[in-house]
């Protein structure tokens, strides 16, 4: 996550909506959700299942994010990591995978089943998985970046016949930091071509060791007929997208998910500005032809 950025004139925040109409439709007020389950994925990462909203927020698409509130601590942007339950166009069940890195994520990480969490959203652009219909889906994840990409795998598997190959390349710091290890095996059995690599192996690890970009060549991709979905630290996304582009995948068919500090989440405050983009509104998912020049600039 990069530091705060000073607002520039190029991105135009929009004014918050007037408080007219039902409170249920304004994204400014967090809704209460109850933690139904809490699964420890790694030493510092959990997946929370949120249910029982008195007033459910609208349904999320894969790639979109919520502003989650740990009451009394603060609010942070966290992507959806599952398909959830969107009965009636409302998010009745949500899944979020989050890593404890600071005060707010530590509080959310510690939230026990039964506790209440605030949810605002959905915010931002989605992965638009359906637009890859008829093509191969290439998913490249680094670290916690696998969390926002999990719904891409799940929605592609749910509609398997619409897509060609589903290739998932994942990098983790160590074998112990790998998310969804059990699910990766299940997806593999379901026909997803899964390859995993770690930066540092332990003696029990029999898989690949190296950067996630090293998995691209052996995957034997068909760049002319693929759409790529990439999520991880900025630098990892840049190198991955460049490696895919070098193999012939057009930048317009490579999507990355940008991360910037956020406050309102809704395009009002300008806090998340990246050049001409407000990442909360125009992102986080952006095609690489738009994102590349912005990701290369040191400070905007």
């Amino acid at each position: 996550m990069t530091g705060q950025r000073t607002a520039q004139r190029t991105a135009q925040p929009t004014a918050p909506p007037a408080p007219a109409g039902p409170a249920a439709e304004t994204p400014a007020v967090p809704r209460f959700y109850r933690v139904a389950s809490r699964r420890e994925d790694t030493a510092d990462t959990v997946t929370l299942e949120l249910t029982e909203p008195a007033q459910p927020v609208p349904a999320f698409a894969p790639g979109q994010f919520a502003m989650l509130t740990a009451f009394g601590v603060g609010e942070v942007p966290i992507s959806v990591s599952g398909l959830g339950d969107s009965g009636g166009g409302r998010a009745r069940r949500l899944e979020h995978t989050l890593r404890a890195v600071g005060a707010v994520t530590r509080a959310l990480h510690a939230a026990p089943p039964g506790s209440l969490i605030g949810v605002r959203g959905p915010f931002g652009t989605g992965w638009d998985v359906a637009s890859a219909a008829g093509r191969d889906i290439v998913i490249v994840a680094g670290g916690i970046g696998l969390a926002p990409l999990r719904p891409v795998v799940l929605s592609a598997l749910a509609d398997r016949s619409r897509y060609g190959r589903i290739v998932l390349l994942a990098g983790a710091r160590t074998p112990g930091d790998l998310l969804y290890a059990g699910e990766l095996e299940r997806w593999s059995r379901d026909g997803v071509e899964v390859a995993v690599t770690v930066d540092r192996a332990d003696s029990a690890w029999s898989g690949e060791v190296g950067l996630v970009t090293a998995l691209i060549e052996p995957a034997g991709l068909a760049p002319g007929n693929s759409v790529a979905f990439v999520c991880g630290p900025d630098i990892m996304m840049r190198f991955t997208a460049d490696a895919l582009a070098a193999r012939g995948l057009p930048a317009s068919r490579i999507r990355v998910s940008l991360e910037r500090n956020m406050r309102c989440g809704a395009g009002w405050c300008g806090h998340c500005q990246l050049g001409p983009l407000l990442v909360c509104r125009d992102g986080p998912v952006v095609s690489y032809d738009r994102a590349a020049p912005l990701m290369r600039v040191r400070e905007l």
Binding site: D44, R99, A100, V101, G102, G142, G143, I144, G171, A172, R173, D177, D199, G210, L211, T213, A214, G232, P233, I235, M236, F239
Partner: peptide, 19 residues
């Protein structure tokens, strides 16, 4: 390419602040 990959791994990009 492998030198670049090694440099990136040196950055320990996936590490959490405490790591």
């Amino acid at each position: 390419e492998r030198l670049q990959a090694t440099r990136l791994r040196l950055l320990d990009l996936y590490a959490a602040p405490h790591q």
